[in-house]
Design a protein around this nucleic acid. Structure first.
Length: 379
DNA sequence: TCTGGGGTCCTAGGACCC
DNA sequence: TCTGGGGTCCTAGGACCC
């Protein structure tokens, strides 16, 4: 039985939600991002511009007009301002995005409930068991999402997740792309290898260095060579991916593995001179992680510290406790122990606290979620 | 004008046990 | 006493994704 898997991706999600609030910005270059200090517009016409931004923030999302100027999600804002000084900069409103995320997922679930969550703005949908014509069904989903949220999305439908993820990106925004295995040579092989989900900056650069630029060139590469260069596991996967082979199922339920909080400072801090400030930050991170654990009903045994130096090198230390906890002071004590094992001879730009080896809510050792806490995907 | 914050998975070495 | 192999847990780092 041939599978039919859809990948649905909301178009420029955060920016599109902001445009619902400020429809007068439609069509303009708009960037969502920045950090504390990124000001919300004071009125309906006076919007902050990218050129006025100072700080370490990055773009979380950019409208298509902003992307046309070279600003993409992940772009440093100071750098982006050089490309698009007049672009409008809006602060992120995460609560809104979570609301719209729940809304579009619940809307899709009413039509096709076999859904895998892939973050705030993406899902896979298994349509294999769905009677009826695939294109009509996908169009119905797009229409329903627009009716419920006012937002557009792009959908790819193919025999597997790997191909659908690529397909949903082919006709953005507001696209609907249906492919079969027979379309791979014409539609997939001409694309850059980096379009494959799982080939990142690192592997992409190594492939370039080997003279492999497109997915087709990757498909034509000898599997033995890929295994030699990238190892047994990843080499074999590269070969399979380039030929569009992917048997991964759509996973509807998944257990959280870790919960963390981290923060990049406004300016780099010195372990000695800024000791008090660093202590305050560390305590606050522990309290926020503890709050997240409590709200979700988890307790965890592995406590981790993350630290980034001014030269961007990152180190981590962790320690595993006898007894799982969600207590801020217990977490702080463990993080302090980790801190003693790390050299503090450079200025710091980031601290992070992580709790792993979680005991799920409902199991012995874990408390139930707080009343009012949101555990479920759709509620 | 460098590079946010929340995650997952993989690798690899050492400890420890059978 | 020596050798070897397998399994699990712990820790550190890194690639990748949204």
């Amino acid at each position: 039985m041939q599978r039919r898997i859809a990948h649905l991706d909301m178009d420029a999600f955060f920016a599109s939600v902001e445009l619902l609030r400020y429809p007068q910005l439609t069509g303009l270059p708009v960037v969502v991002g920045g950090r504390r200090g990124t000001l919300a517009p004071t009125s309906g016409e006076d919007f902050p511009r990218l050129r006025d931004y100072v700080g370490r923030g990055v773009a979380t999302t950019a409208t298509y007009a902003a992307r046309a100027l070279g600003v993409h999600s992940g772009s440093g804002l100071m750098k982006a301002a050089a490309l698009a000084p007049d672009a409008i900069l809006l602060p992120a409103n995460f609560d809104d995005y979570v609301r719209y995320s729940r809304l579009f997922k619940a809307t899709v679930a009413e039509i096709a409930p076999h859904i895998e969550d892939r973050g705030i703005d993406e899902i896979y949908i298994d349509l294999t068991e769905r009677p009826g014509e695939t294109v009509a069904l996908a169009q119905r989903i797009k229409d329903a999402v627009r009716a419920a949220t006012g937002l557009s999305c792009s959908i790819g439908v193919t025999p597997n997740k790997l191909l659908s993820k690529i397909a949903s990106d082919l006709q953005k925004p507001d696209g609907l792309t249906v492919l079969d295995f027979a379309d791979i040579p014409t539609r997939i092989w001409p694309l850059p290898a980096r379009k494959i989900n799982g080939i990142g900056p690192r592997a992409g650069a190594r492939l370039e260095a080997l003279g492999i630029h497109t997915i087709g060139e990757l498909a034509a590469a000898a599997p033995e060579m890929l295994i030699r260069e990238f190892g047994q596991h990843y080499g074999r996967w590269l070969n399979d991916a380039a030929h569009g082979r992917d048997e991964r199922p759509v996973v509807t339920e998944r257990e959280t593995k870790s919960i963390s909080r981290e923060t990049t400072f406004e300016r780099d801090l010195d372990a000695k001179a800024d000791r008090e400030e660093l202590t305050r930050i560390l305590l606050s991170l522990c309290e926020r992680v503890a709050g997240d654990l409590e709200r979700k009903g988890y307790v965890g045994r592995t406590i981790g510290l993350k630290l980034r130096y001014d030269d961007f090198r990152t180190v981590t230390r962790d320690t595993t406790l006898e007894q799982a906890t969600d207590d801020a002071q217990t977490i702080l004590a463990a993080v302090r122990a980790c801190l003693r094992r790390v050299p503090l001879d450079r200025r710091l730009r980031l601290l992070g606290v992580r709790v792993g080896t979680l005991t799920p809510p409902g199991e012995p050792g874990a408390r139930g979620p707080e009343p009012g806490g949101n555990l479920r995907l759709f509620d």
